[in-house]
Each structure stands twice: as C-alpha cells, then as structure tokens.
C-alpha cells in the first residue's frame, strides 16, 4: 500500500449530469436549427389550413382538408434525427482521437456510456418537442380554421409511443457505429449496400424463401421498418399491410433495441489505441 494520500474518482451521477450539460451545449446550434425547422413547418401547416378554409368557403362543394393529426408514420422524422445525432455527439472524436474523453478518471466504458445516455436523453427531448409541436399545430388548425383533425381509422393511444421507440432504435444503432468504428458512415453504407446486393442476388437467383427471410429482416412484422414506423409491414413478398398490434410492435421494438444495445456494448468494449 502506498503512503500517498490518494484522490477519489468522481461519482457517476456527477459525470452523468456534466455529460448532459456538455452534450446539450454541443447540440445547441443543431437544436436551434431544428426548432426553426419545426417552427417553419408548423407555420406552413397553419398557413395551408387557413388557405384551405378560404377555399372551402368559396367552393363549398369541393371541400379540402389539411389533416395534421398525429400519425405514427411521422416518426420517420425523428428516426432520421436519431440516426444523425450520434455523429454530432461524437463529432471530431473518432475512436483514435478520443484521448481527452479517455484521460478522464472514470472507466472508459462508463464514460462513453454516459455520453451516449446524455445524447439519448436529449433525443427524447427532441422527440417530445416534435410530438408536442404536432399536437399543438393540429389543435391550432382545428380551432382557427375549423378543419377536423382526426386520427386515421384504427389509431390506438399506444401509437403515441412509436416516435420515442423509433428514435431510440435509430439512435442506438447509429451510436454503436459512432462509438466503435473510425469511419461509421462507410460501415453503415456498406451494410446497406450489402443488404441491397443480397436482396438483388436472391431475387435474380429466384431463391424465394431466402428472399422472404431477407425481406422480413426489414419489412417483416418484427422488421426494422415496422419497428420504426409502427405502421407498415409486409405479410408476404408483395403485400404491405397497415398496423401491427401493440404486442407485435413492442416485440419489434424490443428486438431492434436489443440489437442496438448489443452492438453498443461491443463498441464500448473496444480498445482503440490513439493514432
């Protein structure tokens, strides 16, 4: 034992709070742009509704409606944001240039995880803002223009959770690549291209069973697209159907969140030496 009086490592909650602050600071410019985009889209929606109302007054026989009631398919917006956010969170810090992050007195894995969690928390805030914006815009349209804002047939309250689930899935999957590999965009592009090539090859070889399996990975009831959109999946090669039930969606969400989590754990465990 050393006779030197040693210093303690920081407590994890302190690190977590600091990561929330620093990631928030890092994202503030992007967030401002995003809020502006949300605002602009809302203004366009409200303006279009006012226009539609004016049209309906003049042409009562040909009524048009602007329906911006929440639909789980809208989640594609937060899915895209979720897929891009990790690259903002880890900007200028590929695994071989993460020296400052790794020089901190906390285990490398925990530290990286805290940053991923901080990014996810902000992603949830963005998703909440997105959902609230849609709710607010449709309410404003209904009250100011009298245009009915109705959910489509079969809409169930659980579908409000879809944006949060889909943002989590894309954020986790993209984070695993941003954390673990030096050129994540090339990796993700290669995987997408590889999947496309496999699909093409199986179709060309008329291997229908294998093709169905490959398609179900993305478009099946538990496929990635179904989990992200919460709405659409394929029952067979040709037919897309609307609406998995809540259990099917939860199954797909759990499956793809699990895949993302496993990839993330593998990425966090990777030791990369500084270049």
């Amino acid at each position: 034992m050393t006779s030197v009086s040693l210093h303690a490592s920081p407590r994890w909650p302190t690190v977590m709070v600091e990561q929330m602050c620093s990631v928030g600071l890092l994202l503030r410019e992007g967030a401002a742009m995003l809020l502006t985009a949300f605002g602009a889209m809302s203004a366009i929606g409200i303006y279009a509704a006012r226009d539609a109302r004016a049209f309906n007054i003049v042409h009562p026989a040909q009524t048009i409606n602007v329906n911006l009631a929440f639909h789980p398919g809208m989640s594609i917006v937060v899915a895209v944001i979720g897929a891009l956010l990790p690259f903002l969170v880890w900007q200028d810090e590929d695994p071989s240039r993460r020296l400052y992050h790794w020089a901190m007195p906390i285990s490398r894995r925990s530290h990286s995880l805290s940053k991923v969690v901080a990014g996810w928390a902000w992603m949830m805030v963005v998703t909440l803002l997105f959902v609230l914006t849609i709710g607010a815009v449709s309410t404003i349209i209904e009250r100011s223009s009298g245009l009915a804002q109705r959910h489509e047939a079969g809409f169930a309250p659980w579908e409000w959770a879809v944006p949060f689930g889909c943002a989590t899935i894309t954020y986790l999957l993209a984070s695993a690549f941003a954390v673990g590999v030096r050129r994540p965009v090339i990796w993700l592009g290669s995987i997408a291209a590889g999947y496309g090539f496999l699909h093409f090859a199986l179709a060309a070889l008329d291997m229908r069973n294998a093709l169905r399996q490959a398609r179900s990975l993305v478009f099946g009831a538990y496929g990635l697209f179904s989990a992200i959109s919460g709405r659409i999946y394929a029952v067979d090669m040709e037919t897309l159907v609307i609406g998995p039930d809540v259990l099917t969606w939860l199954g797909g969400f759990a499956l793809w969140t699990g895949v993302g989590a496993v990839l993330l754990v593998a990425a966090l465990a990777r030791h990369v030496e500084p270049s």
């Binding site: 040693l6 490592s9 020296l99 020089a103 007195p105």
Partner: peptide, 15 residues
C-alpha cells in the same frame, strides 16, 4: 487517472 495530472504531447484531443 484520478491521481494523475497529465499534459499530453499531442494536443489534438477533441472538445
């Protein structure tokens, strides 16, 4: 690392 003050040779640290 909690007990070390480190000044690196390379300053390209991110942040």
């Amino acid at each position: 690392r909690a007990n070390v003050g480190y000044v690196p040779e390379q300053l390209n640290w991110g942040y």
